[in-house]
Amino acid sequence: MAILYLPRFQGAALAVWRRNTLVWRKLAGPSIFINFGEPFLYLLGLGYGLGLFIGEMMNMPYLTFLASGILASSSMNTASFEAMFSVFTRMIPQKTYEAILTTPLEVQDILAGEMLWCATKCIISGSAILIVAALLGAVHDWHALWVPLVLFLVGLCFSGMGLVMTALAPGYDFFNYYVTLVLTPMFILSGVFYPVTSLPVALQSLVQLLPLSHAVDLIRPLVAGLPLSNVAGHIAVLAGYGLAGYLIAVHLTRRRLLV
């Protein structure tokens, strides 16, 4: 059995993306309110509050340090939760995919469309955070305008991984394992709140294997106006996780739905 299912990106996957966009537009008001409200709370509460004691971290105000970390981690959460809870709803209880699979689309198109949508959502919520951060004076460089593009990649990465969990999930409770064992440790260890270099060396190399730290390493210099390093490496890790997740998810989801 062939492992590689390449989607027909032009029409098919975009139809799924458009479906989700249409649903989102119906609830856009509350959704955007949360997109702006949450980072305000985080950046004001933690950034100013903690920043008062911390002052600078790695040659930048703590608010800038934290804002760039939150940009990465919130995209991780946005993409992961959309790819798990929302996709599971469409796949199993709501039978949306069952209906779509009677059209020319195949599983690989549906999942490609879902990943594009998750990544789009990351751009939407990430841009809100970026605007809030800029209003609070945490953004130091026009290069920050590249951040949404990075968040798109971060979205593809984590939605690909989340889709694997969804393909395996017997029910919603299953996602708790992934959140507790993978997402939360990554959130705490990947340099969102403090530099990875303050961790024990062994832990540092482990963190380097996980995608979130690479997202942080791309975003932080763009926001702080510092030079980027190892850009290709960071992009490769994020893209690699996303692509591997996609291919595994397509394989597992086909096995689950095409019986």
Binding site: A15, R18, R19, L22, T103
Partner: peptide, 12 residues
Amino acid sequence: AENLRVYGRYFG
């Protein structure tokens, strides 16, 4: 109507 429209888009 949206059900028909969205489904129709899957056919391009």
